[in-house]
Simulated assay, not measured.
Amino acid sequence: MITNLTALQEQLLSKARSANAQRAAETVYGGRDAILRQTVMALLAGAELPEHESPPEATLQVLAGSVQLNGQDRHWQLTAGDVIPIPPERHSVRAEQDSVFLLTVRRSVE
């Protein structure tokens, strides 16, 4: 199945504009029990994913806009085209402007 990320960005930003949390997401590959999962998430300017535990291995790739990834006592400013491995620590993500990013997560196999 082919997913057009450009079209999905617009759809998710539209959903985020009508959501109380000012965010929207859609998994484009894998599922809850998959080893690898990719989710596209839209956050409106000022919206935040509150601090949470880090998965075993993950990357965040900004598709549009700019976000700040906040770790323990450090942060990273990311703009469209940037990709970063998410550090193995509690972290949060805040949108500096209306933004869309691709979150890729590899969960541990138990």
Score class of each variant (00 low, 15 high):
Q11E: 14
E10M: 09
L103C: 13
Q9N: 13
Q97I: 13
R106S: 14
F101W: 08
E96T: 05
R94V: 09
M1A: 11
L49R: 02
R94D: 01
T39Q: 12
A42R: 01
A24K: 03
E48T: 13
T27D: 07
E110A: 12
L43M: 06
A58S: 15
L78Y: 01
G30N: 02
I84G: 00
R74A: 15
A19L: 04
L44H: 02
P56C: 10
L102D: 13
R106E: 06
D82I: 08
R23H: 07
R74N: 14
P55L: 06
R32L: 10
M1I: 10
A25R: 01
Q77G: 06
V67C: 11
V40P: 00
K15C: 12
R107E: 12
E26P: 06
L44N: 01
N20I: 09
M41V: 15
A58E: 09
R37T: 13
F101G: 04
A7R: 10
G65Y: 07
V100G: 03
D33P: 02
S54H: 06
T3R: 11
S92V: 01
G81E: 03
V40R: 00
T59F: 14
E89L: 00
R23C: 08
L103Q: 11
E10C: 09
Q97G: 03
V28P: 04
A80V: 05
P85A: 12
D33C: 05
G31K: 05
Q11C: 09
L5E: 13
L103I: 11
I84H: 02
V28S: 08
L8G: 10
S66C: 09
P88F: 03
V105W: 00
R74H: 15
W76V: 03
L69E: 03
D98P: 00
R32I: 08
R90A: 14
S66L: 10
D73L: 07
L69T: 04
A25Q: 09
Y29P: 00
L63Q: 14
G65N: 11
S18Q: 15
A16D: 07
E57M: 12
N20G: 15
V28I: 15
A58G: 05
P50I: 06
A80P: 02
Q97D: 09
Q77A: 09
A58T: 02
D33Y: 07
Q9H: 11
A45T: 07
A47G: 08
Q38Y: 01
Q68F: 01
A7K: 11
T104Y: 03
L60T: 04
E89S: 08
P87D: 00
A34H: 12
L36D: 07
Q22N: 11
R23K: 10
S92T: 03
V100Q: 05
S99I: 05
T104K: 03
S14K: 13
